[in-house]
Design a protein around this nucleic acid. Structure first.
Length: 604
DNA sequence: TTAGGGTTAG
C-alpha cells in the first residue's frame, strides 16, 4: 500500500522503507531543492478532486499513512493546491514529529514547482534540527538569503535547540551571542526560553540563572516558563533550597507561578522526602487558586512509592479520583512500581489488569515494570509470559524491555535463555544499546563466566564500537570478585592506552578489589592517584576505604579516616554498619572509634 | 520554550 503510493510520486526512488514500515530519505544534499524547485512538473495527473475538499482535513492526519494519502491526492490535482495547503499539511506532520516524512514531502513539492515560502523554510530547519541534523538546518540558511527571506525567531530557535540537542553547547552559546550582538532577529521570550532550557539540560543551571539576570535588565523580562525551567533544573541538581529561593523571588518580581512551577518544586521536595514542605506548598497552591493536575498527583504518588509508602500512594490515587482527576498510564505505572518494590507483585498485576477497563492501554513501560517485578520475585514464567504478550497486543518490544528480560534471566542464572533472547532480539532487528552490553558483561561476570565477559569486551573493542569506561569497570569488578586481581589490574593500567579515563566508580572498584585481597597499600596508592587526577571521592568510595582499614585492624587509622570522612559530609552506609556491628560483637573496636561512631552516626 | 514512569557499573 505504502510502496504503491510512492510509486506514483515523481521521485519515488528517493524514498526507502525500513522494517517498521516508516520511510526515510536517503541522505542527499539538503539544498538540492534549490536547483529543482523552480522547475514545474508538467506530467501531473488530475483526478478532478477539488482542493477545497481537502484543506480542512489536515487535523485528521494522525500518522505518516494519512499524511501520504492526502499528499498523494493533493499532487494529483490540477491545478496544484497553493503553497498554503502544503504548508498546513507539513505543519500537521511536524506536529506529529514525523520529521523525515515532512522533509521527504518538502523535497517533492519543491520538485513539483510549488513555491517555497518562509514558513515552509522554517519548518525544514525545524525538521532537520529536531532529527539531530542541525548542520543541514544551518545550511538551509543559505536558501533564505538566496530567496530574499530574512531568518527570524522561528528560524533561529530550532537551530539553537538543535545545537543544544546535539550537545554542541559552545556553538549554541556562540550563535546566541551572534544573534544578540548583530541583531539577527528579534530576541523574545521564545528564543530566551530555548536557551534557558538548553543550558539547564546541558547541566549549566548556573549560566541559565545568569541569563535570567541579564534578561531582567533588558526589554524581554523572564516569565513563568523561564523560572519554572530553572527551578526544575536546580531541583534535579539536588539544589532544592536554591530552587525555593527563586520560587519565592517570583511574586516579588511580579511573575506569576503556575501549576508547572509548583509541580517541579513539589517534585524536588518529595524526592528528598521533605513532605512537610510538600504539604505546605500544596495548600498554598490551592489557596492561590492553582490546582494540582494529573502530573502533580503522579509526582507525589511516584515519590511516595519510591520511599516504600505504597499504601499512602494508593490513598493519594483515591483522593485524586474523588476529585475527578483521571489517572493515566504514568500514574498507574508509578503505583505498580511501588507495589513491585515492596515485593507485592500480585497487587501490581491487579492494577495492570484493571487498566484496560479504565480505558488505559498499558505501554511497553507498564509491561517492563511488571516483568521486572516478576523477575525480582523469581516468577520467571509470569515474566516471560508477559514479555511474549507485548507483540500480541500490537506493541513493539523496546530495547529497554529486552534489557529488562536479559537482566532478569541472568538474575535467575538462565544463561542459555539469555543467549536465545539476545539472538531473537537481533533477528527481529532490534539494535542492542549501551545498557545491553552492560547487562551482558555484568550478567556473565555474575554467573561465573568472567572469561566470556573478557572475550565480549575484546569483541566490542574489535568491532570498533564506542568504548565506554563502564564496560571496563563492570569487568574489572567481576575479575576482582573472581579472585583475579592481577587481570583486573592489567585492565585498569591499560585504560589510558584506550583513551579511557577512570572515573570515581572505576577507582573505587579497584580500591575495593585491593581491600578485599588485603592489599591496603595498593589501595592507598590508587587513592593517591585518584586525588592527583582530581577525581572527587564520593560517599561509596569513603565507605569502601573505611571498611578496608577496619578489616585490616588498624583502628587508630580508621578513627582518623572516619573523622575526615564525616568532616566532608559523608557517613557510614549499610554495609559499613553491618561490619561495625560484627566487630562490636567480637569486641574488637577501640574506645576512640566507638565514641566517634556514636557521635557521627547515631542511627548506626 | 517549562513538569511525571521501568532497566542503567563501585
Amino acid at each position: 500500500m505504502k510502496k504503491g503510493l510512492f510509486a506514483q510520486l515523481p521521485f519515488s526512488s528517493r524514498f526507502c522503507f525500513n522494517k517498521s514500515g516508516t520511510f526515510h530519505l536517503f541522505s542527499r544534499d539538503p539544498l538540492h531543492f534549490m536547483s529543482d524547485f523552480r522547475c514545474l512538473s508538467t506530467n501531473l495527473v488530475s483526478n478532478g478532486t477539488s482542493p477545497h475538499k481537502l484543506w480542512f482535513e489536515f487535523d485528521n492526519v494522525n500518522g505518516p499513512d494519512d499524511a501520504l494519502s492526502i499528499y498523494n491526492m493533493m499532487i494529483k490535482m490540477k491545478p496544484l493546491p497553493g503553497v498554503r495547503r502544503f504548508n498546513s499539511l507539513l505543519s500537521r506532520i511536524v506536529k506529529l514529529k514525523q520529521y523525515s516524512v515532512a522533509l521527504s514531502i518538502f523535497n517533492d513539492i519543491s520538485n513539483l514547482g510549488v513555491p517555497v515560502n518562509i514558513y515552509i523554510l522554517n519548518m525544514v530547519v525545524n525538521c532537520y534540527c529536531s532529527s539531530h541534523r542541525v548542520d543541514f538546518g544551518l545550511s538551509v540558511l543559505g536558501a533564505f538569503f538566496k530567496l530574499g527571506y530574512i531568518p527570524d525567531e522561528s528560524t533561529f530557535s530550532p537551530l539553537l535547540k538543535g545545537l543544544f540537542l546535539e550537545n554542541r553547547i559552545a556553538e549554541a552559546q556562540q550563535l546566541f551571542r551572534k544573534i544578540v550582538r548583530e541583531g539577527l532577529c528579534e530576541v523574545g521570550n521564545f528564543i530566551f526560553g530555548v536557551v534557558v532550557d538548553g543550558l539547564c539540560k546541558a547541566g549549566n543551571t548556573a549560566m541559565a540563572i545568569q541569563l535570567l539576570r541579564v534578561m531582567e535588565k533588558g526589554s524581554c523580562r523572564p516569565g513563568t516558563h523561564h523560572y519554572s525551567t530553572v527551578i526544575d533544573s536546580l531541583c534535579k541538581d539536588g539544589m532544592v533550597d536554591a530552587a525555593m529561593k527563586l520560587f519565592y523571588e517570583m511574586p516579588q518580581k511580579g511573575i506569576n507561578r503556575n501549576v508547572v512551577t509548583y509541580s517541579v518544586l513539589i517534585h524536588g521536595l518529595s524526592t528528598l522526602s521533605r513532605w512537610k514542605e510538600v504539604k505546605t506548598l500544596w495548600k498554598e497552591m490551592i489557596d492561590c487558586n492553582i490546582f494540582p493536575n494529573v502530573i502533580t498527583f503522579s509526582i507525589v504518588i511516584d515519590a511516595l512509592c519510591k520511599e516504600g509508602l505504597v499504601d499512602k500512594a494508593h490513598d493519594v490515587l483515591n483522593v485524586m479520583i474523588q476529585k475527578n482527576h483521571v489517572p493515566n498510564v504514568l500514574t498507574y505505572g508509578a503505583l505498580m512500581d511501588g507495589y513491585c518494590l515492596q515485593g507485592r507483585v500480585d497487587e501490581a498485576r491487579e492494577i495492570f489488569d484493571s487498566m484496560p477497563g479504565r480505558g488505559i492501554i498499558p505501554s511497553t513501560i507498564s509491561y517492563g515494570i511488571l516483568i521486572n517485578g516478576y523477575f525480582k520475585k523469581m516468577k520467571i514464567d509470569e515474566a516471560m509470559h508477559l514479555f511474549r504478550e507485548i507483540p500480541l497486543k500490537g506493541l513493539e518490544p523496546s530495547v529497554g524491555i529486552y534489557n529488562t528480560v536479559l537482566q532478569g534471566l541472568f538474575g535467575m542464572h538462565k544463561c542459555s535463555s539469555v543467549l536465545q533472547i539476545f539472538d531473537e532480539m537481533q533477528a527481529a532487528g532490534h539494535k542492542h544499546d549501551f545498557h545491553t552490553y552492560c547487562i551482558l558483561l555484568d550478567g556473565l561476570c555474575g554467573n561465573g563466566l568472567v572469561e566470556q565477559a573478557l572475550s565480549l569486551l575484546n569483541e566490542i573493542e574489535k568491532k570498533g564500537l564506542h568504548l565506554h569506561i563502564q564496560y571496563y569497570t563492570i569487568v574489572m569488578d567481576g575479575l576482582c570478585k573472581a579472585q583475579k586481581l592481577d587481570t583486573a589490574r592489567a585492565l585498569f593500567v591499560d585504560l589510558p592506552s584506550k583513551g579511557l579515563e577512570p572515573n570515581v566508580i572505576t577507582y573505587s572498584t579497584m580500591i575495593n578489589g585491593c581491600c578485599e585481597k588485603g592489599q591496603l597499600e595498593e589501595a592507598k596508592d590508587i587513592l593517591l592517584k585518584m586525588e592527583q587526577r582530581r577525581c572527587l571521592l564520593d560517599g561509596v568510595t569513603y565507605n569502601i576505604i573505611f571498611r578496608g582499614i577496619l578489616k585490616s585492624g588498624e583502628f587508630d587509622e580508621a578513627t582518623k579516616f572516619l573523622d575526615i570522612m564525616v568532616g566532608r559530609g559523608f557517613s557510614p552506609d549499610g554495609a559499613t554498619a553491618t561490619l561495625l556491628c560484627s566487630l562490636l560483637q567480637k569486641k574488637e573496636l577501640n574506645l576512640n572509634l566507638l565514641n566517634m561512631i556514636e557521635k557521627c552516626a547515631p542511627s548506626t
